[in-house]
Design a protein around this nucleic acid. Structure first.
Lengths: 216, 216
DNA sequence: TCTCGGTACGTACCCTCAGTATGTTCGAGA
DNA sequence: TCTCGAACATACTGAGGGTACGTACCGAGA
């Protein structure tokens, strides 16, 4: 017995161009995605069984396999949802400024913040690489967090009069630095202090780069 | 029928203070560890079944569960073996010099090298965090690769007249930078060129730090 | 309003695989 | 030579991902 009661009401209010059946369907799919998100966040990919997922969503495996071809496909949907939402958050925060150095600082602070949210941390940072495989995960990251970092770094290097064949190397280095820094903050006993320390360290590195006569 | 033939000969040669049975036992244990190492490297932790492991080692599950209490324990043994061997390699390379900056450069180059070895890359860098859990993995890394990086960074900061509460933050940042850099190199189409680019990028960062009047 | 088709599920089952219980072999000491 | 225990082998169980098939229900056409 799926939980469609609430959807019917929203249909009455909004009167969208969808059939009642489509509303039912998208409702159960959303329920599956939500229960899967919380369970994957709490117990990881291998640690959550599909029986638990469907039980939490109050449906059966038939419903799950109607909407998702496999457990991995379910995880992928969850992964991309969380990743996209987080990347949008960071991107929006960065766009508050035009100065590349300020943008970098804002982005770093924001990223340290979102990495402390269990969903993003567990699903996108920890489980993602192994569940999706390093290849697919790296590709997804390139279009998301890593892409943001790379563009930011490109702007910084351009502002320093550099910008050349080392850009990708710098991007990889700073991306790793930020990831590791975020874990350092998330695991710290005093995350606030750790966050400031990390920002100070990266700020020091950037300050040093600005003193260099030339990059590349 | 375990493969004990070769061991018997070595007993005749070396005449150690071990019984024939003990030799048999350590031989099958070594065979299990070796087959597990290659299979975990090729297919990951979840992707390899214990049936495959025991088949490759030409024993049965009884033998495996006699030596290891669980699949996870088997992976742990493999993990720590690979990790320790690699850390020793890096440590030995670093100790060729006394100058902290030269040690850092040597260590970086060596680490970029070992990360291209599939065993270390897959088992220690990729599968480790998820299989062991982030907690246990971080603890193990702290006594291994991360420890080396942290000590190196401490020396660099001390040489710059700094060294204080930001040391751990700098350690986390550089550790992540090096990890990410090594993946960048390992995934690159031209690893040699990528390695040089990465070393140039990190070298630039260190050069910038040396120009700063003060750290902390 | 009735039927008909197809979507959206539910149910029962299979297969793989980690783990266990129990049997068996064989070297070592008395 | 005769145990005795370590070092296995064999047969089985249960959990969980995946599948085959049955069913209910909504929507469209007559």
């Amino acid at each position: 017995m799926p939980n469609h009661a609430r959807v019917t009401k929203s249909v009455l209010r909004t009167a969208r161009k969808t059939t009642r059946r489509q509303d039912y369907s998208s409702s159960t799919k959303r329920a599956l995605l939500e229960s899967a998100t919380t369970l994957f966040t709490d117990h990881g990919y291998a640690g959550t069984s599909l029986d638990e997922v469907v039980a939490a969503a109050r449906v059966t495996k038939g419903a799950l396999y109607h909407h998702f071809p496999s457990k991995l496909a379910l995880f992928e949907s969850v992964f991309f949802r969380v990743q996209e939402a987080t990347a949008n958050d960071v991107e929006k925060a960065i766009n508050a400024s035009k100065d590349p150095w300020e943008r970098a600082q804002i982005g770093l602070e924001k990223f340290l913040e979102v990495c402390r949210e269990p969903q993003f941390r567990r699903i996108c940072m920890q489980e993602g690489p192994v569940a999706l495989g390093h290849e697919r995960w790296a590709e997804a990251e390139r279009a998301s967090s890593f892409g943001i970092v790379q563009r930011t770094v490109d702007d910084l290097l351009a502002d320093l009069g550099g910008g050349g064949e080392l850009n990708e190397a710098f991007g990889a280095v700073f991306y790793g630095a930020i990831r590791s820094a975020s874990e350092f903050v998330a695991d710290a006993e005093d995350p606030e202090a750790a966050s400031e320390h990390v920002q100070a360290a990266i700020g020091t590195i950037l300050a040093g780069l600005r003193l260099l006569p030339s990059i590349d």
